[in-house]
Design a protein around this nucleic acid. Structure first.
Lengths: 158, 158
DNA sequence: CCGTAACGGTCAAATTTGTAACTATCAACG
DNA sequence: CGTTGATAGTTACAAATTTGACCGTTACGG
């Protein structure tokens, strides 16, 4: 019944280490698109998601990126000002606005994609092929896992 | 010179996937200590770091946790109010304040450690032993890696 | 149809966070 | 010693984020 070893050792705590690693990588990459185009994180996210989907609503983007809807709203506004994306109305449902990248937006994303790939390549090179494969398969597992009591702050819990 | 495949495929982009996975895990775990003790993220971080070190200055904590010094300052204040930590002066240098957990703080951390370990066990169980080992070794690699042009927003760059 | 509930989106207030200035202390050097 | 520059930490103000209410629609059961 000793209490001695009941203190968690943080250095080995998986969520802690995962968080630190992700933050390190995210910050380094954020520096890339910030320096290159002055994009904020939410703006980059919306841009990237929208580039995948070609056409989406703000709600869809929020769901994919796990971003609060007001954050999406603002990022969309910012990208619209740059003329990187445009809105259009839905014929059937007048509540929804379809978003899609403009020609400019697509070409800017393509340009950033170059840097992104370069960044990723450097990372992969540093990790090594084997570690990278293992990491990717572990990430896939995590994506699939159903964690207890998620209680998401961003998206309404249904 | 076709522009077609120059668009990054986000689903396979390592920094993106790493970030998503870490956020998913972090959020789920944050729900645990928030529900159990009403701790905020920075508070949990300071508590956990301090539990590792037994005694530390605010600056040290900030460096370890990669937290801005004002964030640390506030979290320390909050934990002090709970009587989970106490300050004491340094004899030699009167600028520094040593922080350490009180008896209460230690026992609260021990209690939270239980939940933390349980959470981690569930995660590891879901991932499987092999994937977990691989993940840990990949994380070690990332921790060691030197990423180009870090440009940290939190800590002064030396 | 009509009333109620739900949805997409925006806006404003409240909370959280970062920036920069400030206090107090110390260290180095002439 | 006195001046200059650095360090530890807090605080005031500004920027970003979240929360909650809101408007205009649409869906649907009575």
């Amino acid at each position: 019944m000793t209490q001695d070893n009941s203190g968690l050792v943080l250095r080995g705590f998986l969520p802690y280490r995962l968080h630190n690693a992700a933050e390190k990588v995210s910050l380094a990459f954020a520096a890339v698109y910030k320096r290159q185009e002055g994009l904020s994180r939410p703006e980059w996210r919306v841009l990237a998601i929208l580039a995948q989907l070609a056409r989406a609503t703000a709600t869809e983007i929020g769901a994919q990126a796990n971003m609060h809807k007001t954050k999406v709203s603002r990022a969309v506004f910012a990208l619209e000002e740059r003329r990187w994306l445009a809105r259009s109305a839905d014929d059937a449902d007048r509540r929804v606005e379809w978003l899609q990248l403009t020609r400019t937006g697509r070409s800017q994303f393509a340009k950033l994609s170059q840097s992104a790939r370069q960044f990723e390549n450097e990372l992969v090179a540093a990790l090594g092929d084997k570690a990278t494969r293992h990491l990717l398969s572990a990430l896939t597992r995590i994506e699939e896992v159903r964690l207890a009591e998620q209680s998401h702050p961003h998206s309404r819990a249904r």
